[in-house]
Design a protein around this nucleic acid. Structure first.
Lengths: 236, 236
DNA sequence: TCAAGACTTTTGTATGACAAATAGATGGGT
DNA sequence: ACCCATCTATTTGTCATACAAAAGTCTTGA
C-alpha cells in the first residue's frame, strides 16, 4: 500500500485531507515549503503532488497567493484517486447509494446506445466478458468480471465521452460485493439478467437493452435493500 | 493565449500531440531530457507537465521504461484540457454530435433528479440562472448564461458524481452557438423551453422535467440539422 | 486622502547531482 | 546449447540550491 512513489503518497495525504473537509473550498493550503517540512520531503516532491492535484481540479496555485481549494464543482470526481478519497470521506452506504443513483441515470442509456451503435468486435468483447462472468470463481474474480462486463458494454456505446463513467460502475460493484457472500443464490439470477442484455445488444434492440439494464439495476437495488434490512434486524 | 505558465504550455503541446494520434496508446514518449531539448526548457518543467498528463490518465511513467501512452479508456475525457485537445483533434461536426449524444443520455435524467431532489437554495440558483438568460445580450453572454443554467440544474440533481458532466454541456453549447447568429429567432423559443424546465423542477414533477429537457434537446438537435442543411445547400 | 513605488511572500523555473528501478546484455555453469 | 544469475546502461525519482516572476501589502510623498 505504501510502496507508491513519494510524490504519490504526498498527493494522497493532501488529497485525503481536502476531501475530508480539513481544507474547505476557497480555503488556502499551507505553502510548499511548509508541506515539505510536514512530510519531510523536498519541495520538488510537494510541487509534483500539487501539480497532480491541480490537474485533478482540486486546487489552483498562484504566485504570492498560494494554493487555494477549488469549488467542488471543479473537482474531477471521476478520477480514480479523487473518487477513492471521496469514498473514504463519507458514509459507506451513502456512497453506495449515490453510485447506484448515477448508474440508474447512465447505464440504461448506455445499454440502448450499445445496442444501436456497437461494432462486431465490440459486441464480441461483450460476449467474452459474459463468458468470463460465468466461469468466475471466488469473490475477486466475480467482481472483476462483472466490472469488465459493464466496461465492455460502455465500449459498445461507441462514445468516448462516456468512458469515464466506468469508474463509478467499478466503485459501485466493488463496494456492493464487499458485503455479499460468495455463494449468493442471487448470482445465477443476475447472470440471467446480464445474458438478457447481451441478447438485446446483439439483436440491436435498443429498447430491450434499456429494459434489461433497468431490470438488472433494480435487482441490484433490491440486494442493497435486503442487506440493509438484515443489518437493521441484527441491530434489534 | 500563450501567457500560461511554461509547464502548462509544454503540457498542452504534448497533450495535443497525444490526442492528435502522434503517440498512440501503448506507444512510448521521448524521455524527459529529450522533451527539454525540444522545448528549450529545463527538465523540471517537463516533469511537471508529465505529472499533470499522468494525473489526467493520458500517460504512465516508470523508471528505465519512460512514459507510455495509456489506453484511451483511461483518459480523463471530462477534463477541460483533454476534452479541448480532443475537440481540436477531430471533426467539428462529429464532436458536436458526440457531445449532443452524451447530453441526450444524461440530461433528461438530470432534470428528473433535479425535480425530485433539489433544495430550496439550489432551485433558487436555477431561477437566477434563468433570469440571467433572459437579460443576456450578445453571443458571449448568451452562451455563458445558458451554460450557467444547465450547470445550476446539475447542482439541483444533488449528486456530486454527476457534476463532471458539466464540461460536456459547456463544450456542446459553445460549439453550437459558435455558428448561430446573435439574433436567432429561435432563441425566444429556447427560452420558453428553459422556463418549462424550471417550472417542472419547482413543482417537483420529475416526469415533466424529463419531458421538458427532452424537448429542449430535440430543439437543439433541430438547430444542428438545420445548420447542416443550410451548409449543404451553400455547397451546392 | 490617495496613488506611485518599494517591499515581501509565494509560486515558477533552472541547474546539477545522485538514488532507484528495470530491460537488456553479459557471462558462467550445466 | 540452454538457462539462470549478474552486471550494465538508461530512464525516472528525489534532493538541494539559487534566482525569476507575480502580486498582495506597506510606505511615502504630493
Amino acid at each position: 500500500m505504501a510502496k507508491d512513489s513519494l510524490h504519490a503518497r504526498v498527493e494522497r495525504a493532501i488529497g485525503e485531507r481536502i476531501l475530508g473537509g480539513e481544507f474547505p473550498p476557497g480555503g488556502l493550503l499551507p505553502n510548499e515549503a511548509d508541506w515539505g517540512r510536514t512530510f519531510g520531503t523536498s519541495r520538488t516532491i510537494v510541487r509534483e503532488a500539487i501539480r497532480s492535484l491541480t490537474a485533478k481540479g482540486l486546487i489552483r496555485s498562484r504566485p504570492k497567493i498560494g494554493s487555494r481549494v477549488q469549488p467542488r464543482s471543479q473537482w474531477n470526481m471521476l478520477d480514480r484517486d479523487v473518487l477513492e478519497w471521496h469514498r473514504s470521506a463519507m458514509d459507506r452506504r451513502a456512497f453506495l447509494l449515490s453510485t447506484q443513483e448515477a448508474r440508474r441515470l447512465i447505464e440504461p442509456g448506455i445499454a440502448e446506445l450499445a445496442a444501436r451503435k456497437h461494432t462486431p468486435e465490440q459486441v464480441e468483447g461483450l460476449v467474452t466478458a459474459l463468458a468470463a462472468m460465468k466461469s468466475a470463481k471466488g469473490m475477486t474474480q466475480i467482481v472483476a468480471s462483472d466490472v469488465a462486463f459493464h466496461e465492455a458494454l460502455l465500449v459498445c456505446a461507441n462514445n468516448e465521452l462516456l468512458l469515464p463513467f466506468g469508474i463509478i460502475i467499478e466503485q459501485a460493484l466493488s463496494n456492493l460485493f464487499d458485503f455479499t457472500t460468495q455463494n449468493n443464490p442471487h448470482y445465477s439470477f443476475a447472470l440471467k439478467l446480464h445474458e438478457a442484455i447481451v441478447k438485446a445488444v446483439t439483436a440491436a434492440d435498443g429498447t430491450a437493452a434499456r429494459e434489461a439494464m433497468l431490470a438488472l439495476l433494480s435487482d441490484t437495488d433490491e440486494v442493497i435493500d435486503h442487506r440493509a434490512a438484515k443489518k437493521a434486524k441484527k441491530k434489534r
